[in-house]
């Protein structure tokens, strides 16, 4: 099972952490948001990292999922799981309809279009007060329960969120290592050549856009039930940017890179809190410096470094693996 070695390692970490550090704020609170962010980043990475389609509006799908769950459970008193499914269905439909015109665009134009989509959704969340509660948000969202097991403590949320994260990572790893996954990567490498190999590039792009969107919607529903209160601030342009940064920070086209990026970017602000007023400035500086000096991402960069060190020690029998993303145009 060489394929899934990384997944087992991650699962081990998930199990060991709360045993080693029970009741630790960073484990039961921060790590839960990190796992949530990891779900989002892994989905976005399929779109951005593998298929090479940038999205600056991913928070929109996260928001639609969260608000669908919140509205259905608070206003209509329906089962949270049903609400979650409804959110996924709605987000999937929106993504499916928007995919065709949006994904014809490339580069900065695609960036702008997805940004615009994100802005529109956020404005609607703020303005449609009757439905969403407007800028004040929506409260009283019930917690999830699984066969009578209420997910109502930090530790239980830790279990649920990290299980879903592991599941999403597993799905993503399977997907990438398959016919469809190769089609995605081929699309990134050369769209014409991919078409010539018989890949319906329009359908493939639509498919990955929908998958990224529904994974964001799933994360949104979990977020709504976990927080019990949501407001449009959580689904702003800045959050979209943060998600993109997680993907790039970890290293594009690496599922574990996306998980890593999500954890780094969730813990970083927690650690920067000690700098108080300097926090924003330091965060911006770190972002800039990281992208300037490690454009291939922290995770992938470190991986490469490790590999080189190992090779120096034991002369390789195989030819040296090529630098990841050497030709990687965006």
């Amino acid at each position: 099972m060489k394929r899934l070695r990384g997944l087992f390692l991650l699962a081990l970490l998930v199990v060991v952490l709360p045993i080693l550090f029970p009741d630790n704020y960073y484990v039961t609170v921060v790590a839960v948001s990190a796992a949530l962010h990891a779900i989002l980043a892994v989905g976005l990475n399929l779109l951005m990292g593998y298929a090479g389609l940038i999205s600056l509006g991913h928070a929109a799908f996260f928001g639609v999922g969260a608000y669908t769950s919140a509205i259905i459970t608070t206003r209509f008193d329906l089962n949270p799981w049903l609400a979650m499914a409804a959110g996924i269905l709605l987000t999937g439909c929106i993504a499916f309809i928007m995919a065709r015109p949006i994904l014809r665009l490339k580069g900065h134009y695609l960036a702008m279009a997805t940004l615009g989509l994100g802005m529109i959704v956020q404005i609607v969340l703020v303005q449609a007060e009757g439905l969403t509660g407007g800028p004040d948000g929506l409260g009283g969202i019930p917690p999830l329960s699984l066969f009578g097991w209420e997910v109502d403590s930090d530790l239980r949320w830790y279990m649920v969120m990290s299980t879903v994260m592991l599941l999403v990572v597993w799905l993503a790893l399977n997907l990438i290592d398959s016919r469809s996954g190769r089609a995605l990567r081929a699309l990134h490498g050369s769209e014409v050549a991919a078409e010539m190999m018989g890949i319906d590039t329009t359908a493939t792009k639509t498919g990955v856009f929908v998958i990224a969107a529904i994974s964001a919607s799933l994360a949104g529903s979990l977020f709504a039930h976990q927080q019990a209160f949501i407001s449009p601030d959580s689904f702003s342009f800045f959050f979209s940017i943060e998600l993109v940064t997680m993907v790039v920070l970890g290293g594009m086209a690496s599922t574990f890179g996306a998980v890593f990026g999500a954890f780094v970017l969730t813990f970083l602000p927690e650690l920067l809190v000690v700098f108080e007023d300097y926090e924003v400035m330091i965060f911006g500086a770190i972002l800039m410096l990281m992208m300037i000096f490690l454009p291939q991402g922290l995770f992938v960069g470190l991986q490469g470094l490790l590999r080189r060190l190992l090779q120096q020690r034991a002369p390789a029998r195989l030819p040296a693996p090529a630098e990841e993303d050497k030709h990687g145009a965006a």
Binding site: A111, I241, D277, Y278, M281, L287, M288, G328
Partner: peptide, 24 residues
């Protein structure tokens, strides 16, 4: 020579940095 995404994040980082300085 960095990719579109990388330069976008660099300038966004710069924008956050400048905002942070202004805040300070």
């Amino acid at each position: 020579g960095a990719s579109v995404v990388t330069t976008i994040i660099i300038t966004i980082g710069a924008s956050i940095f400048l905002r942070g300085v202004a805040l300070l």
